[in-house]
Amino acid sequence: MGGEKTKRVIFVTVGTTCFDALVKAVDSETLQKELLAKGYTHLLIQMGRGSYLPTKSEGDCNLVVDYFTFSSSIADHIKSASLIISHAGSGSIFETLKLGKPLIVVVNEDLMDNHQSELGEELANRKHLYCASPQTLHQTIVDMDLNALVPYSPGDATPVAKHINRFLGFTDD
């Protein structure tokens, strides 16, 4: 049993869009070698509407790579992963942070409205995640220290709700 490696999965999600630049970035041999060097064993890519097909591999000395287009829920993939690399959609970001998983957000620079980069960069500044572009993803993985990430705590809306209830004439029970 001593020769078995612990399964450490990186889950990549692009959401429902096409983000071939991210899929191509994680399909790079140099990036995959870096992930192997960091102890990861499996790379699972949710590729959405993209047309770029990553190279599947079985493992041995390589990262085991697999992919799919869509899933009814990515929550199970996020829960079982050791690291998540995600597009910068707020749903994917906050679902991952809520589960306490380490996260690298990759901004899709081809989108018209770049509000995603603002969200990713703000959360990176607060040390909740790492933020990259497809071009900087490899260097982000080289430099990342997952122990430096700060757990994300969602805000407590209770005081606001109580204030609104009092304003509307409802009593606290």
Rank of each mutant, 00 (worst) to 15 (best):
A21M: 00
R49Y: 00
G48Q: 08
E95G: 02
L129A: 02
K98G: 09
K101G: 09
I93L: 08
S90K: 12
R166H: 13
L146N: 01
T140G: 10
L36Y: 03
L168V: 01
I164D: 06
L119H: 04
F11I: 05
L123F: 13
A124S: 15
I93Q: 05
H128G: 08
H115F: 08
L83I: 07
G48H: 08
L103W: 06
E4N: 01
G59L: 12
M144N: 02
H128F: 05
A25H: 01
K79E: 13
D156G: 07
H87A: 13
P151K: 09
T69N: 14
K5L: 14
T30P: 00
S51A: 04
V9H: 00
H163Q: 11
M144A: 12
I93Y: 01
A81P: 02
Q139E: 14
H77S: 13
F94D: 03
H77Y: 14
K79P: 02
E58M: 08
G155T: 05
R166C: 00
P134G: 04
V105M: 15
F94G: 03
E122H: 10
D173P: 08
V12A: 07
S80A: 11
I93K: 02
Y40W: 03
I141F: 10
N108W: 04
E118H: 11
V12I: 05
S133L: 10
P151E: 01
T16Y: 02
G3C: 00
G120V: 09
E109S: 11
V142L: 13
V107P: 12
Y67M: 11
K56F: 04
G100F: 09
K5F: 00
H87R: 10
L123Y: 10
S92Y: 06
S28K: 12
A37E: 14
S80E: 14
T55F: 02
S51H: 04
K162N: 12
H77Q: 12
S71A: 15
V65I: 10
G50L: 05
H128A: 08
F11Q: 01
L146K: 13
L44S: 11
A157W: 07
I10G: 01
K38E: 03
V64E: 12
V106S: 10
V65R: 03
Q32Y: 01
G59N: 00
K56N: 14
H87L: 10
K24Q: 13
V106M: 02
L53N: 11
G3L: 06
E29L: 10
I74V: 15
A148Q: 14
P134F: 05
K7L: 07
S28R: 07
G91C: 12
M47P: 00
C61R: 07
K33V: 07
S153V: 15
G89L: 07
V142R: 03
I74M: 14
A81S: 15
F19N: 02
T55P: 04
T96K: 07
Y67L: 05
H163E: 13
P102L: 04
I141H: 02
M1F: 02
L129Y: 04
D173S: 10
F19G: 03
V160Q: 01
G100L: 13
Y152R: 01
T13V: 05
V23S: 10
Q116W: 11
P134N: 03
G3H: 12
T13C: 06
I74A: 13
